[in-house]
């Protein structure tokens, strides 16, 4: 199956594929991690359960992706594989867990947006909504990808993403059009998170090569996203936004905020303390 789905010839194509897949997997994992931090601390039991469901969806997506990456790496010569994922490990030990637990911050390729702290409910909701709307349009494209494994993962995830969009956009509307306090918290959330939105629409090399999306498609992805967000904001009686201002980038090429290091320190401490243990 791998011969069909990944071009084994030019090393660079491999690199692009692995990096793009890692980028998708890391996004899901770190989103899942942040959402899971709410478990037991939600504003009401019912919403605690809802958010934990979303965390589970993200962790599940990341597992599918890491597992797929691991099988891809088995087929590539060891040296190349290790350079690709940027860490030192015996090739036979490459699996979903080593990919998640043994890479350092510079090897992670998630958007800066997803690693930012949860903040309050408004900030968390806006992060989930903006990321899920982006994922919704992206996965609609990726489910037609020639890599059938990726297409399959995108198709399966889309159902989850649709629900995340529905759930989180309804919350934005409630908060924006709720009380004075909730509106001002939504405005603060927008102000805090907005500089990180642009990174989603600035494709790096591996996205361009592997997604096979031309500039026109990328522009329409961006416009669709912005239209949808503004539609939600309008319903929420919040001011509409644009993407013209300066934004933060770097996550996708391994240049992260300070927050990611703490996430990984917490997440990875056990496998790193007991290197060869099975859990």
């Amino acid at each position: 199956m791998n011969a069909e789905t990944i071009n084994l010839n030019p090393a660079s194509t491999n690199t692009m594929a692995i990096h793009a897949l890692l980028h998708l997997a890391d996004d899901s994992l770190i989103m899942g991690h942040r959402c899971s931090e709410w478990c037991g601390h939600g504003p009401i039991l019912e919403q605690d359960i809802a958010l934990t469901n979303i965390a589970l969806d993200f962790v599940g997506q990341s597992r599918h992706l890491y597992q797929y990456i691991a099988t891809q790496l088995q087929d590539i010569s060891n040296d190349v594989a290790l350079t690709l994922i940027d860490f030192d490990i015996l090739p036979e030990k490459i699996n979903e867990d080593s990919l998640a637990y043994l890479r350092d911050t510079h090897a992670f390729k998630n958007h800066l947006l997803v690693e930012l702290p949860n903040g309050d409910w408004a900030q968390t909701i806006l992060k989930i909504c903006s990321f899920s709307v982006y994922r919704f349009y992206l996965f609609q494209l990726l489910q037609k990808h020639t890599d059938l494994n990726l297409a399959g993962i995108a198709e399966k995830s889309l159902k989850e993403v649709q629900y995340h969009v529905k759930w989180s956009s309804e919350w934005i509307i409630r908060l924006g059009d709720g009380t004075h306090e909730s509106k001002s918290r939504m405005l603060q959330a927008i102000e805090f998170l907005w500089p990180y939105m642009g990174e989603m629409f600035e494709p790096v090399m591996y996205e361009k090569v592997y997604y096979h999306l031309d500039d026109v498609t990328y522009t329409s992805l961006k416009n669709n996203w912005l239209d949808k967000m503004n539609q939600i904001f309008e319903q929420a009686t919040l001011p509409t936004q644009s993407l013209n201002q300066w934004h933060q980038t770097g996550g996708k090429i391994g240049k992260h905020t300070e927050h990611l290091g703490y996430i990984l320190a917490e997440m990875q401490f056990l496998p790193r303390t007991f290197p060869n243990a099975i859990w």
Partner: peptide, 20 residues
């Protein structure tokens, strides 16, 4: 039963709570 602020939320909560 469950608590929800509105019907849409009640249906979503029911989905999360009773159809896991």
């Amino acid at each position: 039963s469950l608590h929800a602020a509105d019907a849409a939320m009640a249906i979503e909560n029911a989905r999360d709570v009773y159809t896991r």
